[in-house]
Design a protein around this nucleic acid. Structure first.
Lengths: 223, 223
DNA sequence: ACCTGAACACCGTTCAAGT
DNA sequence: ACCTGAACACCGTTCAAGT
């Protein structure tokens, strides 16, 4: 190891990929997607914007690394449970809540497919699908469907949260949306108008898990 | 109607929201997401960038309007079919293929929830769910799950396509990915390694529709 | 090897001035 | 009412120069 490298490692304020990613996560959480700029990040790391490029290729790679870290952390905290069905629900919920807490994860998750984060979710879900005891040829399809659904809902939910003014609470928001839906054109939106009433008692997490159960029922039926 | 307005309407090169959105779609299709700038758009419309702001509030609204147009067009072309199950597959496939052909639709679709496009898909799917004859309380959950899945897969698939170099064909890409999956760490990715072989015979559309069938099986079981 | 920060080549958006 | 285009306030990224 070169002398210069060791010296840099010893300084606790030395730049590193890890420190940069951590600072990026903090910035994204505090200021939102638009808050992450190389200038703001450099200021936070007490350096110039150019320094970051020695450790990371570009902004896209930085955001992907940040989202990988969030997903890895979330999956690492999923507790072991008795049945594969329960395990799948736990993994799904962990992803949902991670994206809900860090809405900026949506962008890399839906922009960079089969990155580490997606692959980790796929792997974790896939193992439980295997454990369900369905035929081998159904494994890939079932795991893919579950992962697509999980990502789809999580991304949609995060967008919902982002669109909301912070001071508007969920109940008020659902009430407003329900009212809007009821005023839609009766010929164009008959279904939406009919289910608008149901929106008031809407529970995102419960609805999300109900969808998981729907898919798992379908998977079980393929036995 | 004011004289000035009528005069403008008569000139075939007069600016209008519709002409702007059409030009934006063309630009997005030809140059990709980064190709849409107010300067490029203004050049194409033979005007200055400021002129556009008279008709459209900002870039976000423009991209949402463009994606709404794409989805509306795609849904408008879905043929009527015999069974609700078949109809749901057709609607799903129409969305999938629209997003595949216009990958930039992904961004507004996953960023602006319950915009016109999402609502239209929800409505169309919902009507067919009603026709399936499941109990009323299951309508909302079933339609939501289907829409989330459809959007999830479509967005993920579009990202896949965008990541690919244009000259790399699908077969070669799947081969490379399968090879990469097989070289993953055996302890960390046992499932992914196992299903890697299946990737070579992977058919995106077939896999997508298999997922739809999975959910519909689950919906039917809730009767 | 790693850091600095000015500079480059862009953006979206605004706005005074025109017609 | 609608259009023009210069100007403002930013960006991500590069790179010569430093240590």
């Amino acid at each position: 190891m070169a002398k210069a490298t060791r010296a840099a490692e010893r300084r606790e304020d030395a730049l590193s990929r890890e420190r940069i990613v951590d600072a990026a996560i903090a910035l994204l959480d505090e200021e939102g997607e638009d808050g992450l700029t190389f200038r703001a990040l450099a200021t936070r790391l007490a350096t110039g914007p150019g320094a970051i490029y020695w450790h990371i290729a570009n902004k896209s790679e930085l955001v992907v690394a940040a989202s990988d870290a969030i997903v890895a952390r979330a999956l690492g905290e999923v507790p072991a449970v008795a049945t594969p069905h329960q395990a799948i629900r736990r993994i799904a919920l962990a992803v949902f809540e991670a994206v809900d807490a860090h809405p900026w994860v949506s962008a890399p998750l839906s922009r960079a497919p089969w990155q580490t984060a997606t692959l980790q979710i796929f792997e974790r879900i896939g193992r439980q699908v295997q454990a369900l005891g369905v035929p081998g040829r159904a494994h890939f399809t079932s795991a893919s469907a579950l992962v697509s659904y999980i990502l789809g809902v999580s991304v949609q939910n995060a967008a919902q949260g982002r669109a909301l003014e912070p001071e508007v609470d969920r109940a008020a928001f659902l009430g407003t949306t329900a009212a809007q839906w009821k005023e839609l054109d009766a010929d164009e939106y008959p279904f939406t108008r009919t289910v608008a009433a149901r929106l008031r008692e809407h529970d995102d997490r419960a609805e999300f898990l109900a969808g998981i159960d729907l898919i798992l029922t379908g998977v079980a039926a393929s036995r």
